[in-house]
């Protein structure tokens, strides 16, 4: 049985942050400065640049009361699978300043690619297998990788639109999603296995959490002192109902808001999105 689990992750830079927009803009500027000298368009040959799935635009029902009832998503393309260790290794080889020994700590902290044997060597650790999803990557590194292949991280709504396809109110799937959260270790396996979802995208459920682009733009953090903080008592206000589908959706939002941008995690990977719909170069 394959646990099918909705999950996505949204980065948070620092608890003591200035306004989101200010920091988001600043971070984006820093990132662009850091990466721009390295940009040559190698997307055509880069691993991860292929197997893009064209996603038609549409609308979907959001899970949060404070959001509008329906959210529109414009057409885009999404990678069929998360980025693998092998693909990310190619990126690091091509862009040595994203090697773990070279990257500034503001973009990736000490745990960055710590499961690899060396800066440009995957080694034999189980999590470093070439066809497994790359983990222990910071939001900045993930964003830079996607830039390198001519894309970007998907937005939260794009990710959820695709990941939730046909399953938003499916309680049976919600139960399965809880199962992934309660035992994510069971999910470690190569990307691309199992049946694709209705859009033809793999591994949106049951493999790893994934970074998305949005920089604290959707849901306020409880450290902001807003009434929508995700504490014990406040959470019930955020869901539209009391069924399991709502509960698991809420969990995704909690997870989404709680990763630190310069720090990866052992079950946190990413995939890239592309503005122009298409099926590869």
């Amino acid at each position: 049985m394959t646990a099918r689990t909705l999950r996505s992750a949204r980065p948070r830079s620092d608890r003591s942050r200035p306004t989101r927009t200010a920091l988001g803009a600043l971070a984006a500027t820093i990132l662009a400065t850091f990466a721009s000298s390295a940009f040559a368009q190698e997307a055509a040959s880069a691993p991860g640049a292929t197997d893009r799935i064209a996603i038609p635009g549409g609308t979907f029902e959001t899970v949060l009361v404070l959001d509008a009832a329906e959210v529109a998503v414009a057409p885009f393309a999404l990678a069929a699978t998360p980025v693998t260790n092998a693909a990310f290794l190619a990126f690091v080889e091509a862009r040595p300043n994203w090697g773990r020994d070279a990257v500034p700590s503001v973009f990736a902290n000490a745990g960055y690619l710590a499961h690899w044997a060396g800066t440009t060597e995957l080694g034999s650790a189980p999590a470093a297998a070439p066809d497994l999803p790359v983990t222990h990557v910071s939001w900045y590194a993930a964003a830079s990788y996607c830039d390198w292949v001519g894309g970007r991280l998907p937005t939260e709504y794009e990710w959820e639109y695709v990941a939730g396809a046909g399953a938003r109110r499916d309680v049976a799937q919600a139960v399965a999603q809880f199962a992934w959260y309660s035992s994510p270790e069971a999910s470690v396996r190569p990307v691309g296995q199992g049946a694709p979802n209705p859009f033809g995208v793999h591994d949106l459920h049951g493999l790893v959490l994934e970074w998305v682009h949005d920089f604290e733009t959707v849901l306020p953090g409880e450290d902001d002192g807003t009434p929508f903080g995700l504490g014990c008592g406040a959470a019930a206000r955020l869901t539209t109902g009391n069924d399991l589908a709502d509960q698991v959706a809420l969990m995704r939002h909690v997870v989404r808001m709680n990763f630190v941008a310069e720090r990866g995690s052992s079950r946190l990977g990413f995939r890239c999105a592309f503005d122009a719909p298409g099926n590869g170069e």
Binding site: R12, G111, Y181, S182, S183, P184, E185, L209, E222, D223, G225, G229, L230, G231, C232, G233, V254, V255, M257, N258, F259, V260, R263, S265, S266, R267, L268
Partner: peptide, 30 residues
């Protein structure tokens, strides 16, 4: 040993504090 990355928090009923400050959720690694 096991691994399950997840945000968590700590709420001591023995303490009298502002929960949104002390009992706040922290990410894996924080």
């Amino acid at each position: 040993e096991a691994v399950a990355p997840m945000p968590h928090s700590m709420d001591f009923h023995s303490g009298t504090v502002a929960a949104n400050d002390k009992w706040r959720t922290i990410a894996p690694g924080e």
